[in-house]
């Protein structure tokens, strides 16, 4: 038997076991993107095809403020990540909390919008094709924000109890990827629903 074991240079294995969280999250994001694209396609396909009103132009208003909140939460979570990476738990906690607050503001904004649509403008999921596709697409996104905010909150609780330490930064980074993804999806949903087809 020739030389058996030999050291394999690190550079040979660009992805290794400690990266699996990231890779797994990328896979999840790919699968989720596929789901979202079908909802987006359905929205675009049915745009303007409703047999009766109301139409998007009549009832939709661009949610500028809440969108800004959601987008800036991507920045705050980045700051939090950086802070954890260097072990600054306080700073991490503060910005993590800020991220949650921004996410919740976004959700409240959606809730207000929906309340107005349903009770004042009479648009429900079964009113017409616009209603069906609108509530489905925006709702699917909101559902993801809710899941994300729940995850954020759980981590926040652990932070408050002092269980989050610097060595968790990698795992928390993986979770943050999900939040970034949810934000990125909002770019698509926002432009499709509130700009392109309105």
């Amino acid at each position: 038997m020739a030389a058996t074991t030999m050291a394999v240079p690190q550079s040979e294995m660009p992805l290794s076991a400690h990266m699996r969280g990231k890779v797994g999250m990328w896979c999840l994001i790919a699968a989720e993107s596929a789901i979202f694209s079908i909802f987006v396609v359905a929205y675009l396909y049915y745009a303007g095809k409703s047999l009766s009103g109301p139409t998007p132009a009549q009832v939709l208003e661009v949610p500028i403020f809440t969108s800004i909140c959601l987008f800036s939460s991507s920045l705050t979570i980045l700051v939090a990540e950086k802070a954890l990476h260097i072990g600054n738990i306080k700073r991490f906690g503060a910005f993590w909390l800020l991220t949650i607050v921004l996410g919740v503001i976004f959700l409240l904004g959606t809730a207000r919008e929906w309340h107005g649509l349903i009770y004042e403008k009479g648009l429900t999921i079964s009113t017409n094709l616009f209603g069906t596709t609108f509530y489905s697409l925006v709702g699917l996104h909101a559902f993801h924000v809710i899941v994300g905010a729940t995850g954020l909150t759980i981590i926040m609780i652990f932070t408050a109890l002092g269980h989050v330490r610097q060595e968790h930064s990698e795992r928390i980074g993986v979770f943050a990827m999900y939040w970034h993804f949810v934000d990125a999806i909002w770019v698509v949903v926002l432009s499709v629903v509130y700009f392109i087809t309105r």
Binding site: A30, A31, S33, A34, I35, F36, S37, I38, F39, A42
Partner: peptide, 9 residues
């Protein structure tokens, strides 16, 4: 990953 999504949706 890319094909089950459409079915799920």
């Amino acid at each position: 990953l890319v094909a089950i999504g459409p079915l799920t949706a």
